[in-house]
Design a protein around this nucleic acid. Structure first.
Length: 286
DNA sequence: CGACTCTCCTGGGTGC
DNA sequence: TGCACCCAGGAGAGTC
């Protein structure tokens, strides 16, 4: 699933393969892909046709590509669970899950938005501020220079919820999803249901170091892939999956102590942790 | 406003 | 073999 490292790998690929190119045609192949573009698929395509991608930016799991021209607009994208932005040969037939395609005036490789589970989306938004208005509520991510660790620690301890739920809240800290939340908590030796208001400063500090570490290492590895669900713009998979300590490793040994990894039901999904390194707190909250 | 649940979607896996 | 189910999960809408 694309989280911060995977989205950043895609962003870097877009800088290389899309920025500087002029869109000749935008085709929406599945209306759901542009459901957040309220004016509809035709308007979406019209707003991009003939315009040039001038940059590729990211905040958390959101990507946007400003387009040059009369209006200051940007193509905003979220990959959801299974979304990919990949380059392709315009002469080759499109696979079944291509939801949108952009062809370029230079007749070079096209850009395809592929999304099997259709949780991802694209829209064209006005670029007024530093960050597009629809994602103004998304907090900086832990690798951004504008990320304020002290403000994060204070906000975290004002919350009354479980630490994992807080890590997944993109308005508190962005870029972290189910995989890296579990991995960061394991590194920091914190249980996922630990109440945020009981966290000590030193524990928040440990958690931030853990989160930054796991995100940075995954980024270097090109992201996490379990299958072809996540790929870079060239269709290649990352290899961080082999470095995961607990995520998806039910009953396998904890790399630190050897205890068997447990899987708990959490918010209609899963939380993976080590029963020894991450003991359940007295007053669990989730 | 904060905390929390529900909903959207597809295809691979599983149990009967 | 077929079919009903379950599961993966990001984030916004909705509820209390």
């Amino acid at each position: 699933m694309p989280e911060l490292p995977e989205v950043e790998v895609v962003r870097a690929g877009l800088v290389r393969y899309a920025v500087g190119r002029t869109i000749e045609r935008a085709d929406v192949l599945h209306p759901r892909a542009v459901r957040r573009h309220v004016a509809g698929p035709d308007d979406f395509a019209a707003r991009l046709t003939g315009r040039q991608f001038t940059a590729a930016r990211r905040r958390g799991k959101y990507l946007w590509l400003p387009v040059g021209g009369d209006a200051a607009d940007a193509l905003l994208a979220h990959l959801g669970m299974s979304g990919q932005l990949v380059i392709g040969d315009p002469g080759c037939p499109l696979s079944g899950h291509v939801r949108a395609r952009f062809t370029f005036a230079d007749f070079g490789p096209d850009l395809r938005f592929v999304d099997q589970r259709t949780f991802g989306h694209l829209c064209v938004v006005p670029m007024g501020a530093e960050v597009p208005e629809p994602i103004a509520h998304i907090a900086p991510d832990p690798l951004e220079t504008s990320f304020d660790p002290a403000a994060f620690a204070a906000a975290l301890r004002r919350r009354h919820t479980g630490i994992k739920r807080a890590l997944l809240d993109q308005s508190l800290v962005s870029g972290i999803g189910n995989i890296y939340a579990d991995e960061a908590l394991w590194r920091a030796r914190l249980h996922w249901a630990r109440p945020t208001e009981t966290l000590r400063r030193s524990e928040v500090e440990r958690l931030l170091i853990a989160a930054r570490g796991v995100l940075a290492e995954a980024l270097v590895a090109g992201g996490t892939s379990f299958d072809a669900m996540y790929v870079n713009v060239n269709g290649e998979s990352g290899y961080f999956g082999r470095s995961l300590a607990v995520y998806g490793r039910t009953a396998l040994p904890c790399p630190r102590c050897g205890e068997r990894v447990r899987r708990d039901a959490f918010m209609n999904r899963s939380a993976y942790s080590c029963p020894h390194c991450q003991p359940r707190p007295r007053h669990a909250r989730w």
